[in-house]
C-alpha cells in the first residue's frame, strides 16, 4: 500500500495553486488535509501525476463573521472550526456535525474545504453546507465565482468545480439566536461514515410556530440532500408530534439511497425518515440551549 510515483509542488498562495492546476491539467490533485486523498493513493485507487499542496496557503485558514454570515477559509482545520467560539455562536450546528467527522486526529489535519471538495455523499460537511444553503467560493484562472451548495455537489465525489479551480471559502448563513440544532447520525461505529445522518436547525417564532427550519441528510443519495419537502411541512406550523411525523413522512420520496455491505437501501430510506423525526425533536428540545 505505497502510493504510485507522483510529483509534488507546494503552492504559496491561491494564485500559484491555480496556475499549477492549469499547467498540469486533470491529472493534478490538490492536497489539502489528505485524510481522504492519501488513503486512496495508498491503495493506488488514485494516482495523480502531481500533488499541489496547499497546506501552507495560510491566507485560506481563517474563521470570521462576514456580513451576517460565517466565512470559513477552505484550509481551516476541522478541529479549529469545531473548537471555535465564533463558529459555535454563528452556526452551532457545525461543531456538532464535525464531532462526527472521523476522530480528533483526522480533524486536526482534515480541512473544511477538503471535505467539501471531496464531495462524499455520506460525509457530514457537504450535507451541512447543503442543508444550510451555504455558498462555496472557488477561484480559477478566470477569477472567483460563487456556487450555491445545491449546485456545487453534482454526484458522488463530483462537484461543479473545474479542474483548474480551487475551493477557497465556505460561506454559511448565520443562524438566528435561539435556533435549536441537532445532528442525528446512524453509523456502525462513532467516526465512521454515516449510514444515514440528518442535521436539523429549527427556530420558533414567539407564537411557537416554526419560522426557520433547515434539514439536511447524508448517506441517502449520490449527493448530499437538503430535505425541502420536509422543511415545507414544518415551516409556519406548530411543531407538534403530528407535524414532525408528517414532515418525516415526506422523506421517503425525497431520498434515493443505494445499498452497500452495511445497510440496504430500504434501511437507509427508513432511517432517514426516523432520524428526521429525532433530529427535529432534538433541535426543538435544545432551543435556547447554547451549543
Amino acid at each position: 500500500m505505497k502510493p504510485a510515483a507522483v510529483k509534488y509542488a507546494r503552492a504559496g498562495d491561491v494564485q500559484e495553486a491555480v496556475a499549477l492546476l492549469s499547467e498540469h491539467g486533470t491529472d493534478a490533485k490538490v492536497l489539502a488535509g489528505g485524510q481522504s486523498l492519501v488513503p486512496l493513493m495508498n491503495f493506488r485507487l488514485a494516482s495523480p501525476s502531481i500533488l499541489i499542496d496547499i497546506n501552507r496557503v495560510n491566507e485560506l485558514a481563517y474563521v470570521r463573521e462576514d456580513n451576517g454570515s460565517l466565512l470559513i477559509g477552505a484550509m481551516t482545520r476541522q478541529r479549529d472550526v469545531e473548537t471555535s467560539p465564533v463558529v459555535a455562536a454563528a452556526v452551532p450546528l457545525l461543531p456538532q456535525a464535525l464531532h462526527h467527522v472521523g476522530h480528533v486526529t483526522n480533524r486536526n489535519r482534515g480541512t473544511v474545504g477538503g471535505s467539501v471538495a471531496h464531495a462524499d455523499p455520506a460525509s457530514e460537511l457537504p450535507a451541512l453546507v447543503t442543508g444550510l444553503a451555504g455558498e462555496l467560493t472557488v477561484e480559477g484562472p478566470k477569477g472567483q465565482r460563487t456556487i450555491a451548495a445545491e449546485d456545487f455537489f453534482v454526484g458522488t465525489f463530483t462537484t461543479a468545480m473545474e479542474y483548474d479551480e480551487v475551493l477557497t471559502a465556505v460561506r454559511l448563513p448565520r443562524l438566528p439566536a435561539g435556533t435549536g440544532v441537532a445532528v442525528e447520525e446512524l453509523a456502525r461505529r462513532h467516526g465512521d461514515f454515516a449510514i444515514v445522518a440528518v442535521m436539523a436547525a429549527v427556530h420558533l417564532a414567539p407564537d411557537g410556530s416554526v419560522d426557520l427550519v433547515r434539514l439536511a441528510a447524508s448517506g441517502v443519495d449520490s449527493v448530499p440532500l437538503r430535505l425541502h419537502s420536509a422543511e415545507a411541512v414544518l415551516a409556519g406550523a406548530q411543531p407538534t408530534a403530528d407535524a414532525i411525523a408528517a414532515a418525516a413522512a415526506t422523506v421517503a420520496a425525497s431520498v434515493n439511497p443505494t445499498g452497500d455491505v452495511h445497510a440496504p437501501a430500504s434501511y437507509r430510506r427508513d432511517m432517514a425518515q426516523l432520524l428526521v423525526k429525532r433530529a427535529v425533536g432534538a433541535a426543538i428540545e435544545r432551543i435556547g440551549v447554547s451549543a
Binding site: L31, Q35, N106, R109
Partner: peptide, 24 residues
C-alpha cells in the same frame, strides 16, 4: 493499515496528532 483508520502511526506534528501514513 496505511489508510488512516487504525491509528498505530499516530505522531505529533507541530503539537497536534496526525496519522503519519496520511502525510508525505
Amino acid at each position: 493499515c496505511e489508510h488512516g483508520v487504525c491509528g498505530a502511526c499516530t505522531i505529533m506534528v507541530d503539537g497536534r496528532t496526525a496519522r503519519a501514513c496520511l502525510m508525505l
